[in-house]
Design a protein around this nucleic acid. Sequence first.
DNA 1: ACCTGAACACCGTTCAAGT
DNA 2: ACCTGAACACCGTTCAAGT
Lengths: 182, 182
Amino acid sequence: MARPQLIDREAVLDAALAIADEHGLGAVTMRAVADRLQVTQMALYRHVANKADLLDGLVERLLCELPAPEAALAWDVQLRTMAQGVRTTAKRHPGVFPLLLQLPANTPLARGVRDRVRAALVQAGVPHERVTSAERLVSTAVLGFATSEALGRFRGLSRAEIDRDFTLLQQMLLAGIEGLRH
Amino acid sequence: MARPQLIDREAVLDAALAIADEHGLGAVTMRAVADRLQVTQMALYRHVANKADLLDGLVERLLCELPAPEAALAWDVQLRTMAQGVRTTAKRHPGVFPLLLQLPANTPLARGVRDRVRAALVQAGVPHERVTSAERLVSTAVLGFATSEALGRFRGLSRAEIDRDFTLLQQMLLAGIEGLRH
DNA sequence: ACCTGAACACCGTTCAAGT
DNA sequence: ACCTGAACACCGTTCAAGT
């Protein structure tokens, strides 16, 4: 006999993300997630393979939040928008964000983000054979900055100082990209 | 009555680092460290305040490994040497290295590294009021790249490709630094 | 002074059982 | 089909006790 379904995968991820945002990644235990859903820990395993799968789900959630600027916009506007979006997500979910750095990034969603960056670089005039490495360079730099910010490595600096640093980084990257044009 | 001292802080850190290098940070448990030292877990607490303190000790160990190039060398040689040293350490200790990104970096050793980078930037002709932010920019970029490498985000790329990417990053950073000169 | 035994609260995970 | 109870192996940490 079917009994009323109390939770589903989305609800599990919602609860886990809320806990991570409020109390950090360390507070995300199967028990804590279950408690928030008014359910026992074991109930989670029907909707999530294990804890690693749950964390993968959280990363996917962050990737969903990243902006997808119109391809009709100027290439540098597209890149700036995406870079700013990465920072915004990092600040909104500082506990989960660092996981982005250690992911293989082979999921459809991660590939989608990468393809958007590559497309903007092609529009910028970067020759095709250099696009792959240029994308890695830009993504690594932006991800590294945002992760540092999320993990508190810039603790003690004012928001204005961090913003100025980020602008400087963007200028360097844009100048570097222009140097790759044919 | 004094009994023979079986272990000390250095031995604890040696064992923990060896385990992390061999089996990853997740394998570094108080039990595993104690087992390797032929001692019970509880014995560790006399030499290490708790697990967080142990991890701090590991980070210090990595900072010790970073090269300290002669100040008489050309500024760009100094920076290249330090950047290469960061990468070497990241590859030698991929399990522990990511911890560098989340550390407050206010320990004497971390300050020492930062001061060496700052000194090289001053030699490069970066005006004093911009040295602080330039140092953060350079360090964040290099640390972000090395962390990505350590965490396997470049998995699937050949060593030659990664090296080329890193050279590209260095060139961009050096160009950016030259742009800051007065 | 340094190490150990016993104990505690916590963690992820499994599996048979209930509805 | 979905959730629960009971159980397991593991974790960090404490404290009194032994030498």
